[in-house]
Design a protein around this nucleic acid. Structure first.
Length: 198
DNA sequence: TCATTAAAGTTAT
DNA sequence: ATAACTTTAATGA
């Protein structure tokens, strides 16, 4: 999935470090770079006018950030912000295009990655738009779990805080917590030292 | 059913 | 110690 690091370095990528809370880019900014995560976690989000946050996605090692925006002239529709200390590889848009020219097989990889993203986005929108609270949560957790190999129950630790989960489902945190508790009672998940096992 | 407010407990820095 | 996160309870749309 990720682009080979050496290829990125050869064409001029640079290593950048960010601290937790730093912006990689902001909503309405112009996309000028390809980013790939080496370490750390990034969230893509929006802030509503009342200050409430909606998380679009959480990305980690080997994910690329905002690559879908490099093929349009549109501004970023979201922020990218570091959740933890991060190191990223950053490549200018022009160098990125050059790399694609030199290695056309990357196009296919990119297409696959984009398809994957789009698929998840559709599922997420479906689950966030038209269900009750617990159903929303169930679907979101289900979606995250699909990325790991082991599909047996209670083996997947939800890698989010309650607050992040709330921002991802569009629910308030208290409702999120109550829903989690209810799901625990229904044996849909387990809570082990405050971590959600799904 | 779910958001909001308030208050208090817990964990991380 | 202080900030960030988690939980419970009461109230109201």
């Amino acid at each position: 999935m990720p682009i080979n690091k050496n290829h990125l370095y050869e064409i001029g990528a640079v290593l950048e470090k960010y601290n937790a809370g730093d912006y990689i880019f902001r909503e309405n900014g112009t996309p000028q770079f390809y980013y790939q995560i080496l370490t750390g976690e990034i969230k893509l989000n929006n802030y509503h006018s009342d200050g409430k946050e909606f998380i679009q996605n959480i990305l980690s090692t080997d994910d690329s950030i905002g690559e879908s925006l490099l093929f349009t002239e549109k501004a970023y529709p979201m922020n990218a912000r570091a959740l933890t200390e991060c190191s990223l590889l950053k490549l200018s848009k022009t160098s990125f295009y050059k790399l694609l020219e030199l290695q056309p097989q990357l196009y296919l990889m990119l297409c696959k990655a984009l398809s994957e993203r789009l698929y998840k986005k559709y599922i997420l929108i479906k689950s966030v738009s038209c269900h009750s609270a617990s159903e929303r949560q169930n679907e979101v957790m289900q979606l995250m779990k699909q990325e790991q190999d082991n599909q047996s129950p209670f083996t997947f630790e939800i890698p989010l805080t309650r607050q992040q989960l709330a921002s991802l489902t569009g629910l308030c945190i208290e409702t999120t917590i109550r829903t989690i508790k209810k799901m625990e009672r229904q044996k849909l998940l387990r809570i082990e030292n405050r971590k959600i096992m799904y």
